[in-house]
């Protein structure tokens, strides 16, 4: 039968993707299902192997009710991601627009902006935050900053979060800058010429030509940023899941339920972001 399938040359494509297919089934699909299964069990690892004891939805229940640390971190995560992702995408768009101007040393600037992507491992970022160089210290001693930091509301705390993590946020935007920059170079120059002959200012050209043609890349960057931000080892939830994995009272079962809650949350965030962008896109058309 296999011979019959392979008679058609097009079906040889299966041979090429076979390694991925095997990996996908054994190392992605099976683990996803298995971790979902484990999330309903109490798992203990003994010398004879793994022992499981069904606990129903108790793992999820205790994660959402009694694990105060986890709940707080989830709330913090949602707040951070709702601020960070749009901010990172906007910052990288602005920097890409600057780079797209007719300027010299473009290569040098691109090299600088991409550098953080190469060196920002979790421990390096941890050190920057821990030693308080994740932000410019001249900003933090500013009187205005201190005044706002003293206030106690959501806007003030968001502002403080942005300032305190300014460099981390910039460091997360290296790839996105390049994606926008590359997309900007591919917008047909003739459209701008035609628009400027019709009397459009560069401000109008930006909103009417540049932005709509960038929509697909805005989408790509939002997804990319959300995923990268969520799985980075900076995420406090990732750390919480990892520490629960190897704790005797909680173990793999409980950690699995935590990672499922986190996964669902990430997907919800992605749906929210892409939904909003999709709506904008439709309005434009």
């Amino acid at each position: 039968m296999i011979k019959k399938i392979m008679k058609n040359p097009e079906n040889k494509g299966y041979l090429f993707i076979l390694p991925w297919l095997i990996g996908f089934v054994t190392l992605t699909i099976y683990p996803i299902l298995y971790s979902f299964y484990l999330s309903f069990f109490d798992v203990t690892i003994t010398t004879e192997g793994i022992q499981t004891e069904s606990v129903g939805i108790e793992n999820y229940q205790s994660a959402m009710t009694s694990d105060i640390e986890f709940i707080n971190r989830l709330i913090e995560y949602v707040r951070e991601i709702l601020i960070s992702v749009p901010l990172i995408v906007i910052i990288s768009l602005l920097i890409a627009l600057l780079l797209n101007q007719n300027i010299r040393f473009k290569g040098v600037f691109r090299t600088i902006f991409f550098l953080p992507v190469i060196i920002s491992s979790g421990p390096v970022l941890d050190k920057l935050i821990g030693l308080d160089i994740a932000t410019l210290n001249m900003v933090e001693t500013n009187a205005l900053y201190e005044m706002i930091a003293g206030m106690d509301n959501i806007l003030a705390s968001s502002f403080v979060y942005i300032i305190d993590n300014l460099i981390i946020l910039l460091w997360f935007s290296g790839v996105q800058i390049l994606i926008f920059n590359s997309a900007l170079q591919k917008v047909d120059k003739k459209i701008y010429e035609a628009a400027s002959i019709d009397g459009a200012s560069s401000w109008e050209s930006f909103w009417k030509i540049t932005l709509p043609s960038l929509f697909p890349m805005i989408m790509v960057n939002i997804v990319y940023t959300t995923v990268m931000y969520s799985v980075s080892s900076l995420s406090t939830i990732v750390g919480h899941i990892q520490s629960n994995m190897f704790q005797l009272e909680t173990g793999f079962g409980y950690a699995s339920s935590l990672s499922w809650i986190y996964f669902i949350l990430i997907v919800l965030v992605l749906i929210t972001f892409t939904g909003i962008i999709g709506l904008f896109n439709r309005k434009y058309k």
Partner: peptide, 30 residues
């Protein structure tokens, strides 16, 4: 994926891309 047309190619390609979104935390325990 690029040079052959086979049955289910589009779905498989979507699955490839979707693996990007799956956080390693889900698969790491199994």
């Amino acid at each position: 994926f690029a040079r052959y047309d086979f049955k289910g190619k589009r779905i498989l390609l979507v699955l490839v891309i979707s693996t990007f979104v799956i956080p390693p935390q889900i698969t790491v325990i199994p």
